[in-house]
Write a protein that binds this DNA or RNA. Structure first.
Lengths: 141, 141
DNA sequence: AACATTTATTTAGCACACTAATTAAAATTT
DNA sequence: AAATTTTAATTAGTGTGCTAAATAAATGTT
């Protein structure tokens, strides 16, 4: 099969993204986190007590995904869920001390992962890349 | 949380890749294929009768993934599996007529997906992008 | 020839996302 | 006030990959 430039990019994107995800997943396992949970925690480090709907919105994922992440994080003692006093439908998510302690190690792993991915790519090139990514993103959404 | 340029790129890559995959998956469902199976078939269109190990190598995936894809493709009548006459361990994969007929529609969907992703990005920019992708790829592998 | 190792494939089970359908509470309409 | 609609969360089940362990055939060693 002839591989055009365009095709190359699509496949390359897929390959880079899935490899990155797998590497990062392995790295996060060292601190008992799964991929996706780091982003959820990052939102809580900005301020906790928000609802699952707000988390789904922020993470651009679906409610069942939040349900599962939150369940896992609670079982591991990183967060607790409390039902809202005024609205009996909503659950509010709070960090435990154990959850708060994860901020530094996650930040480190994030930076480590970024540097691995972008190694040898200059700041100017990174800007170009970010621009292209944003344009592809708007093509899809 | 402060979002650095680097972090932006990592997240954007993830987002673009997963959205692309979902869109493409939906498109492939119209011709009774799942994501990944198109690449397996593409290899067979170049020449069939190869083994599952060769497919795993080519697709850069693990043997169990090939087992599952091949099982599904066989159930849908796109391929048949035949045990090798000389080596009783290996299965050789052959296209059926139904499988051969998929080449054109898959090619069409591929091009459609590429054009959607790269819409508004000039040929020069595509070259830059491809170069950057390749460099990120070599950073990871 | 018997035993051990390697190789190809399969099975079992997990991670992480999704959609569709369900439950339960709140808000709106009549 | 009762009935309907909306909203938040959950459950059930699927897709697409993975790893670890099992099976079964071939090859290598003694």
């Amino acid at each position: 099969m002839k591989v055009s430039v365009d095709c190359d990019i699509r496949e390359s994107l897929d390959k880079v993204s899935s490899k990155m995800r797998r590497d990062y997943s392995e790295s996060l396992r060292e601190i008992n986190l799964y991929v996706g949970q780091d982003n959820l925690l990052a939102r809580l480090w900005e301020g906790d007590g928000i609802t699952q709907m707000q988390l789904a919105d922020h993470l651009k994922c679906e409610p069942p995904t939040v349900t599962n992440m939150v369940k896992s994080l609670e079982q591991n003692g990183f967060i607790i869920r409390k039902r809202d006093g005024k609205d009996g439908r909503v659950m509010r998510i709070y960090l435990t001390d154990k959850g708060k302690e994860l901020e530094k190690p996650v930040d480190f792993k994030w930076k480590q992962q970024q540097e691995k991915l972008l190694n040898g790519i200059s700041p100017e090139e990174r800007l170009v890349l970010r621009d292209l990514m944003k344009r592809m993103e708007s093509n899809l959404f």
